[in-house]
Amino acid sequence: MSLFSGKNLDYLLGPLSRNNPVLVQILGICSTLAVTVKLENALVMGLSVTAVTAFSNVILSLLRNTIPNRIRIIVQLVVVAALVIIVDQVLKAYAYEVSKQLSVYVGLIITNCIIMGRIEAFALANKPWPSLLDGIGNGLGYTIILAIMGFFRELLGSGTLLGHSVIPQGWYAANGGGYMNNGLMIMPAASLILVGLIIWAHRAKNKDLIEK
């Protein structure tokens, strides 16, 4: 069996849209909503979660036959927590500003439902290679949603993208134009409504996902 056979490719690409962890499986909502005020934070968070999901999937898939069923939750938590500590230290060393802004949400990757959900649903029943692909796929699916939300919230809320201002200064009301940044987009409420709208658009396109 080749490494990228149809089934394996499906593990990698399925979660990007058809089986998206945020929109369809409704996992990892907390951080999706909280860290998307700026596009940069959203991307860093997405990549951190992708790394942790991929590695924890591989490690637990390797361990899957040796873990007693009764204590598996605590074993999973310990593995994930160790990986998150590494991510946290790396972020503090190489992206200190972003890590300050993400604050507790880096630590909360441990309890991010995507990671626990994928370990429980996939890694404990599959070989390491498909688990790795599944982890990367789900992490990237999560990153895409974060990037979409970060894009709209930063663009409409602060008029910038990745810290560079994109709305011409002359448009602003202060400079004689008629444009104002939408303060609501920075507020927590906007992210909830935005996710609702993204789900609406996604389900309107994939009609079989509509709930009865």
């Binding site: 409420a189 409504i193 609702g196 709208l197 609406w200 509509i210």
Partner: peptide, 23 residues
């Protein structure tokens, strides 16, 4: 409710509105 918004979608939007009221 519009069909694609049923269930989880509308729950998000309602939570958003509740969040505004808690502001």
């Amino acid at each position: 409710i519009p069909a694609p918004l049923r269930g989880i979608g509308i729950s998000f939007i309602v939570t958003g509105l509740m969040s505004i009221s808690f502001m």
